[in-house]
Lab assay of single mutants.
Amino acid sequence: MEVRTIKVFTTVDNINLHTQVVDMSMTYGQQFGPTYLDGADVTKIKPHNSHEGKTFYVLPNDDTLRVEAFEYYHTTDPSFLGRYMSALNHTKKWKYPQVNGLTSIKWADNNCYLATALLTLQQIELKFNPPALQDAYYRARAGEAANFCALILAYCNKTVGELGDVRETMSYLFQHANLDSCKRVLNVVCKTCGQQQTTLKGVEAVMYMGTLSYEQFKKGVQIPCTCGKQATKYLVQQESPFVMMSAPPAQYELKHGTFTCASEYTGNYQCGHYKHITSKETLYCIDGALLTKSSEYKGPITDVFYKENSYTTTIK
């Protein structure tokens, strides 16, 4: 009895394709271990004539594949690729409408935090270190965002349907971005203890939790000093293409032309909904596939993004 075979390709990165001759009487799992086709788990399936010449994702289970996976995804987590594939199996079914010149995501599976993050990423200057993220990001900007969303979920250790947080998501993504040249110098002034300067680099240099107003941050924000008295913390120097200011959701007025974009969060910790506000020729609110415009805006804002380049204080 002759062994019926077909020729397929296996890959971990969709760049390096490895030619395989597979036995049609055995499952993919018996031949390769966990195997995925377009995100779908085909591990328990036997090869079919229609699979001839198709590319299958496999887990990096030998040295060659491990090197290829690390170079593309910059992670050695053995569960990463499987999590990416199972997320992709959902995100490829989502709709990605162009809204006001940006790629958004039609609401499904509690994905409003991903839509808000995706919209924000198209408006701030950011370059990702893992080629996987950078490639998928370019495709997302062009309207094909399924891979990018699935990668975000995998890097953030999230599953489809789980509630997510924009600030946490951005923080994970910033860790995989090139923020080497970003720098922030802060000064804390206390009447009792004097003053202390701190220099922050990388992710810490672009994120701040405690106030939404970048102007206020430049002037000074009140913080408790270690001595128990009130101290003032203010920005001395900022070198970065953008800054992200966050605070627990509270009524906040966004003035046209003073910011790049913002995240609105309605609801409580267990259950809520994100919308995205962007400042173009007027203010726009993007909620999944829905767009509304207004000249002014007041609502429960939790993150505001500002364009920056270089700032030095005039406070002496």
Rank of each mutant, 00 (worst) to 15 (best):
P249D: 00
P224F: 09
Q216N: 07
H18V: 10
M85I: 08
S295V: 14
V42R: 05
R66M: 15
G220E: 01
G33D: 03
T91W: 01
Q98G: 11
G53A: 14
Q237L: 12
K54A: 13
C112L: 04
T103G: 00
S86I: 12
M207H: 02
H51D: 14
S295T: 10
Q175T: 09
G194I: 01
T232G: 02
R83L: 10
V189K: 13
C193A: 07
G299M: 04
K229G: 15
A231H: 02
T64L: 13
L179F: 02
T35S: 11
L235D: 00
T64R: 12
A146Y: 05
Y311I: 06
Y113C: 04
V99D: 04
V42C: 14
T64Q: 14
K158F: 04
C227V: 01
T35G: 12
N61C: 12
V99E: 10
H256L: 15
Q195D: 15
V221K: 03
I315Q: 15
M207Y: 04
E239H: 10
P241R: 05
H74A: 03
K233Q: 11
R83S: 05
T76H: 07
V189Y: 07
T91F: 01
T5Q: 12
L37Y: 14
T226V: 14
S104V: 01
Q20I: 09
M244N: 01
K293I: 07
Q216L: 05
A132E: 06
S213Q: 05
Y234Q: 08
T258F: 02
A231N: 01
L81H: 13
E204P: 09
T314P: 06
H276P: 01
S213G: 01
I124M: 05
A40W: 11
G29L: 05
Y274K: 03
A231D: 02
C182F: 05
L133A: 03
D303P: 02
D303K: 07
I277D: 05
T258L: 03
K158L: 04
Y73D: 05
K233S: 12
V188I: 13
Y172H: 12
T314N: 15
A40V: 13
L114S: 05
K127D: 11
T64W: 08
Q197T: 13
I301E: 01
Y57R: 02
D287T: 04
A117Q: 08
E296A: 11
N110Q: 02
S25L: 13
A115G: 05
C193P: 03
L88T: 09
D165G: 00
D77S: 08
D63K: 12
M26N: 14
L179P: 15
T226Q: 14
R66E: 15
M170L: 14
M207I: 07
D13E: 00
P131V: 01
P300I: 12
Q197M: 12
R139S: 13
Y36R: 06
A132L: 06
A262W: 04
R167G: 06
E296V: 13
A262M: 04
K280T: 09
E68V: 07
E308H: 01
K7L: 12
L186I: 15
K127Y: 04
V8Q: 01
D62N: 12
V21G: 11
Q238V: 00
A108G: 05
S25E: 15
Q230I: 15
K158H: 01
P78L: 08
Y274C: 00
A40F: 11
K229T: 08
C225N: 04
T282Q: 11
T159F: 11
C225K: 03
A117Y: 10
T35L: 13
K191C: 10
L133M: 02
N178Q: 13
Q30R: 14
I6V: 14
E308M: 10
L163V: 08
N268L: 00
H256F: 08
T292A: 04
K92C: 01
T103S: 02
F305L: 04
Y284I: 12
I45Y: 15
D109G: 07
A140K: 09
T314M: 12
C271D: 12
V185E: 07
G220P: 07
Q175D: 02
E204G: 10
G288S: 02
T232W: 09
A142T: 14
Q31D: 14
K219E: 11
Y252E: 07
K218Y: 03
A145D: 03
Y73V: 02
C193G: 03
I152A: 08
R66S: 12
P78C: 10
T260Y: 10
K229H: 09
G210H: 04
E68L: 05
V221D: 02
Q123K: 03
W107E: 03
Y311G: 03
